[in-house]
Structure formats: C-alpha cells, structure tokens
Simulated scan of single mutants.
Amino acid sequence: MTTFAPEPTRLTDPPAATQGTTQSTPPFEHKGTGEQIALGFFIVVPFLALLAAVPIAWGWGLGWRDLVLAFVMYAIAGHGITVGFHRYFTHGSFKARRWLRVTLAVAGSLAIEGPVIRWVADHRRHHAFSDREGDPHSPWRYGETVPALIKGLWWAHMGWLFDTEQTPRSKYAPDLMADKDMQRVERAFPALVVVSMLLPALLGGLLSMSWQGAVTAFFWASLVRVGLLHHVTWSINSICHAIGERPFVSRDKSGNVWWLALLSMGESWHNLHHADPTCARHGVEKGQIDSSARIIWLFEKTGQAWDVRWPKQSRLDARRVAA
C-alpha cells in the first residue's frame, strides 16, 4: 500500500518518520477490551439520552438553567475540539501561549472523543489518506454503490471507533508525544471524563439547591450534550465526505454542508478545509458561520495567539474550481 506523509502542522518540523516512504511504518497500536467497553458505554448511553430528549422535553419541559448549562458545556468542549484538537494541535493553524495550549487540550478532552494525542494522530492519518485506502473513517471504504455507501456511512460515522487497530501515535503525533504538557493531559483523560459528566450535575444541584436540579442538569448538560456533540463531530467524517458543495479543488470527496455549520462551529465547511488544511478559517465565503475562526481571532487580538494562518484571496483563487 502506498504511504503518504501527513499534512504539515506548523507546530514543529515534520517528524522524520513522515518525511518520506523509506522508513518502515510503525505497527498499529491495539485497543484493549476495557477500552472497548468504556467506548461502547460513552457512545450508547449519551445516544439513548439524545433519543429520549424530545419526549422528555415535551413531557417535563426544558428549564432555562439546564439549557444554559448544556449550551456552555457544549460550547467549551466543542470549541476545545474544533479550535484546539483540530485547527491547532492537528494542523498548526496558529501558535499559542502555553496556558492556552493546555486549556484547549483540557477543553477538548471534555468532549469525551478520546485523549488529545490519540485524536490528533487519527486526524492526521485521515488527512494523509483522505478517502483512500488507509483513511481510518472514509464513507467510501466499501465502494460507490448505494449499499456500499450506506455501509460506509455507518463505518465513517462511528463504526471505525470500534476498530481494535489504532493509528500509531509515534508516526503521526510524535511532537505531542514529546510534549510533557500534552502527556499530562493525555494521562488525565479518565479524570476529565468524570469532570465532564459530573460537573453539570454539581452546578445544577447548587444552582437549584435540589437533587432534581442535579438530575435534570446531568441529563441535559451531560448525557444529551455529549451525545449531540459526538454525532455532530462524527457527521463531519461521514456526511461531509458523502454530500455537499465542492467549490474548491481537493483530492477527496469533502463537501460543504451548510445545515451543520452552527452546531459544528464551522467545521462543516469541509471542502475548503481539505483544499487548504492549515487555514484557520473554514467558512471563507460571505455568510458562512464559523464560530471557531472568531474565537481564534479573539485569541489573536488579545495576544494569546499569533502567526494565524488566515485565508488569503490568492490561495483561495488558486484552489477554486474553475467555472
């Protein structure tokens, strides 16, 4: 199988293991049984809560306290993924001060989508082989017929998460593996999962001074919030590689899906992202919502981020599909 170097990240010089194809590929890491069970639990339980959300909201109502807690937790964890795990750690779209790097790693961990180094390694591998053999989550894995695409969409959305073979972190994220701060955040992931799940309940109980407030906050701001964020993130892997407009040239089938833009915090402008992976803004056209880019802009304005790779008209024009 042909190997391809991951996209450069601008965080460090490209690791020697990814600069060419003369070195052997490190063996895949393997997911243990305990990790598989934990993964299944944190996928199935929030998903069931997400399914129950509508009838429960209809029967019991959704209070403002729970709504605010769910929104705040969704925004923190979601932007931790989009700004931190994705645009910063994976692609190096900007440089950041140490406190911001650690904060973004912690915030992204609250999404319960896996530890930071694991997430980054998987995504760099995705870009190295996007929609080709070697991509960990392409919906075109089984072919282009309708039955094959249905099977592929399931795989890209969440089936790949249960693959026991794991992306070798030493090949795709050696910079983060050598970073002591990221090592600490990676090791703290189980504790951060507990914080992510129980903090809303604690706040809900304290704000309402009742056990009922703790229970409803846990349901909405923990279970439903995690379930919704999971499926929005996974939709970028599945839906945005199967449908959508493709105004820019990329080597894969990535598309722009407008109706996911708000919930995905700008990630669903996916065609431009794959055409120019290190760009800090994905929604580059007029009216394209990209809250992640706005947060990066705020970090830059306050001096916490610099060397931001903003889109340039010349780069966009060079990548635009000819009329």
Rank of each mutant, 00 (worst) to 15 (best):
M1C: 02
T3A: 13
P8A: 08
P8L: 06
T9Q: 14
T12P: 01
A17T: 15
T21A: 15
S24Q: 15
T25S: 06
E29L: 06
T33F: 12
T33H: 08
I43S: 05
P46Y: 09
P46G: 10
A49Y: 09
L50P: 00
A52S: 13
A52H: 03
A53E: 08
P55R: 02
G61T: 11
L62E: 06
G63W: 02
A70S: 14
V72A: 09
M73Q: 08
M73V: 10
Y74E: 09
A75F: 15
I76Q: 07
G80H: 08
Y88T: 05
H91V: 02
G92W: 08
A96F: 04
R97P: 00
R97N: 05
W99V: 09
A111I: 07
G114S: 09
I117D: 05
R118V: 11
V120R: 01
V120D: 10
D122Q: 02
H126G: 09
H126I: 06
H127G: 10
D131W: 01
R132L: 13
D135M: 00
H137Q: 05
S138M: 04
R141A: 14
V146P: 06
P147A: 05
W154C: 06
M158P: 02
L161Q: 09
L161Y: 05
L161E: 07
F162E: 13
Q166T: 10
Q166H: 00
P168F: 07
P168T: 13
A173C: 07
L176P: 07
L176G: 13
L176D: 13
D181Y: 04
D181H: 02
R184G: 10
R187W: 12
P190F: 04
L192M: 07
V194K: 01
L198E: 11
L199I: 14
A201F: 07
L207I: 10
S210Y: 07
W211I: 15
W211T: 15
A214R: 03
F219E: 11
W220K: 03
W220L: 04
A221R: 01
S222N: 15
L223R: 02
V232M: 03
T233D: 11
T233Y: 09
W234K: 03
I236V: 15
S238G: 09
I239Q: 01
I239N: 03
I239K: 01
C240T: 14
A242I: 01
E245T: 15
R246P: 03
V249T: 13
G255I: 08
G255P: 10
L260N: 09
L263G: 00
L263H: 02
M265K: 00
E267I: 03
E267M: 04
S268V: 13
S268C: 13
D276T: 12
P277R: 00
G283L: 01
G283S: 05
G283H: 00
V284G: 04
V284C: 06
L298G: 11
G303K: 00
A305V: 12
A305W: 05
W306A: 08
D307C: 00
R309H: 11
Q313M: 10
R315F: 02
V321E: 11
A323I: 12
